[in-house]
Amino acid sequence: MLDQRDTDAILAERRAAAIAERLLATEGQLLDLQDWDAWLDLYTEDCTYWVPVWKDEVETVSDPAREVSLIYHTSRLGLEERVFRIRTRKSVTAMPLPRTVHMVSNVLVARQGEGEIEGTAAWNVQHYDPRVSKRTSNAGHYEFTLRRDGSGWKIARKKVTMLDDLLPAVIDFYGL
């Protein structure tokens, strides 16, 4: 028989997974729609956004203070600057922007506590570049920490590990 404690735990876990799935899917959709303001609004102001480099065949870097990352922002400002740069209409990387389809799956909650959910997911981004009429794809894993923010939830930490270590000429937030 399941006692109340078990069912509470199950429900809490289901609830956390549903929140994470919804938030990550929403993020992907907003990136695909190029609704940058709404996308930025999914992140806490003090968020960490980290894309590590593969150090060798099996390990990525683990210490951004002493090792190189592809992207390492410790506040939303870093993401806002990337959006700002695209909006200047002066970066050839965004003229034109590629079209994307974000797919997030295998969302697993590893830990949940008071107002916080941690977990992992797998991602795949289909990426079509009208500049060269070419479709490519990126894929990898996410590690995330979500935090309750008022009545809603936001992304407080996201680590994006790319599958590849031989990269294309341009990679930015909308393709991750």
């Binding site: 870097v61 090792e67 190189v68 990352s69 031989l166 990269l167 294309p168």
Partner: peptide, 11 residues
């Protein structure tokens, strides 16, 4: 080298 080589290609 600071650990973390970045390799990429361009066309």
């Amino acid at each position: 080298y600071v650990p973390g080589e970045v390799a990429y290609t361009y066309d």
